[in-house]
Write a protein that binds this DNA or RNA. Sequence first.
DNA 1: TGCGCTGTTGCATCCTGTTGCAATCCCCTC
DNA 2: GAGGGGATTGCAACAGGATGCAACAGCGCA
Lengths: 341, 341
Amino acid sequence: MSDQAPDSPARRKPTSYDVARHAGVSQSAVSRCFKPGASVSKKMRERVMKSVRELGYTPNAIARGLITRRSNMVAVIVSNLHFYPEILSELSARFSERGVHVLLFTLDHESDVSRILDQVWQYQVDGVIAAAHLAAEQVAQFQERGIPLVFYNRSYRDLPVSSVCCDQVEGEHQLVNLLAGNGTHKSFAIIAGPSDSVVSMQRTQGAIDRLQELGVDDITEAAGDYSYSSGRRALQQLIAERGAAPDAVICANDMMAMGVMDELRFHLELDVPGDVSVVGFDGVRAAHWSSFDLATIEQPVESMTEAAVSMLMERIDNDALPPEKRTFSGVLRAGSTVRGA
Amino acid sequence: MSDQAPDSPARRKPTSYDVARHAGVSQSAVSRCFKPGASVSKKMRERVMKSVRELGYTPNAIARGLITRRSNMVAVIVSNLHFYPEILSELSARFSERGVHVLLFTLDHESDVSRILDQVWQYQVDGVIAAAHLAAEQVAQFQERGIPLVFYNRSYRDLPVSSVCCDQVEGEHQLVNLLAGNGTHKSFAIIAGPSDSVVSMQRTQGAIDRLQELGVDDITEAAGDYSYSSGRRALQQLIAERGAAPDAVICANDMMAMGVMDELRFHLELDVPGDVSVVGFDGVRAAHWSSFDLATIEQPVESMTEAAVSMLMERIDNDALPPEKRTFSGVLRAGSTVRGA
DNA sequence: TGCGCTGTTGCATCCTGTTGCAATCCCCTC
DNA sequence: GAGGGGATTGCAACAGGATGCAACAGCGCA
């Protein structure tokens, strides 16, 4: 009588009720067969699973999430500019091991943040990893709503939030020590990232402080946006300002450092490190390539992602855990872009 | 009497019932205030919204998805190796414009696929973008379940599935024409990607066919895994086999081409393009850098992602739409790695 | 055979919104 | 003031599975 073909491809997906009817048991029995550790006899489980296979049943994670108040999803918020693909796939893999799924949010403009957060609340995620800048009142909303939040590679000195970072200041000190080791560099330039980036601020300030400790006072500053081309532009601007290239350029990240290297070598006909030394920060893949072999600080990405994931999961399982900041030391990679190193 | 502090941070999130009670209206009225185009009087909407603000209510997308059978989530499946960050953020942004969220799945090993698909079914996603290889029977499951699927940058010649591709064969023809244009190249090498990559197969076969059309018969082949270092290794192996460097190296993607360039220039002391010409495929950012300035085919990433997203959305809204394959032409970028070009 | 204990199972209710339908309201017209 | 019609609003039935509690089965032991 029905006008729907019994095996039409658009037929309704089977539910636990369908399975229960087919197996001649109650719906709750079916439910229990999918709950690890539930009290189900072997006979019951086999009977149910047989029907499950025959009907092609898959539990509905949405419905489950509604009643358990656990969606098993976490949001990962990344701002477009500074995102390394490795981190994202690393995060995704590690969450996946724990049966948790990643809902991805990318930010084009900082103004999107509140719109994004609205979405985050709606989707009932169990927790959030933020690799983007949030305002203090936005951070406060997480606390109000009881949603665990872990910052990745940025920390808020005066806010009680969890974060995983690489020690930016220590890293810059290592780089400056490498540069200053043999006294061949007199003038220094620093190319910062975007002015609203706390990480850039920490890195550049770390470098400046160490330089000043060592008695250097010829320091010029410029800023880019973390991209290759912005590194090149910043260098041009810097040289226009100074009238000559500095002895060493300290860049807030590797991308800009590689831009600087290419500008020096291919457009200004200067040798790296013969004429100018260059250092970066991050340890991205391309920095290892023979074309660059850049001196940089390698962030321990694996340890950092593992830490971020486990911190978040712990806080999802136990909401009484206080915020915690974990800082990892970066590893100096000397490369061959520093004169005399 | 309650032992729960009234403003404890862990208090239950307000639901539409709480809002309704607070505003003195029915729960369905609250629901309608969040449904665009629903019949709600201005007075009612204001009254409800006032309570919404006062209680800090956010609709629960999970519960909504349960009844509407639309989760407004799509799964994006990427296999680790060949993924460009740009594509992912591009996809995420375009879906976001349409109010759709991205659930990210990354594949480490091909064996993960069926486990991943299981997760995909459970999460009731409205559709799937796959930038990974699926077996024919896995593709069939999508049809059975009525979940729209669009492949990104890989197509199945003999399967009725939707896909968005760059024309690999045409692109290779352009590259070979560029190389062969002035008759200075006699011997050619081809570095393919992994053997299970259909894209790599198409690209290398496209190049070989065109070379043979032009009467070239000195062609050596090797394979890498799409990575920079595998390009270098493949070149070494190739030279060991031939006894000398070929006149031109055609690489299945840009990463390997850059590896080849670096191996040639920095380890074999050969000039590019003076001694050896190199071409890639993809048009990744680094290919544009002055260090490489690689001859390659630029995939029209924006058009392709837009096409993938709109194809998927159309099929989510209308499940009667037949599969469609869309192929975009790549744009030749001459660069400066081809002798005499 | 009867009793108590442990391990299973089913019942009923709950989670949070959405929506068809019917009741109601408001305002205007006659 | 009564009647009519469209716009609003509320009621109640879902969507699909989780779970506390009570009922019950099976088994060992007296």
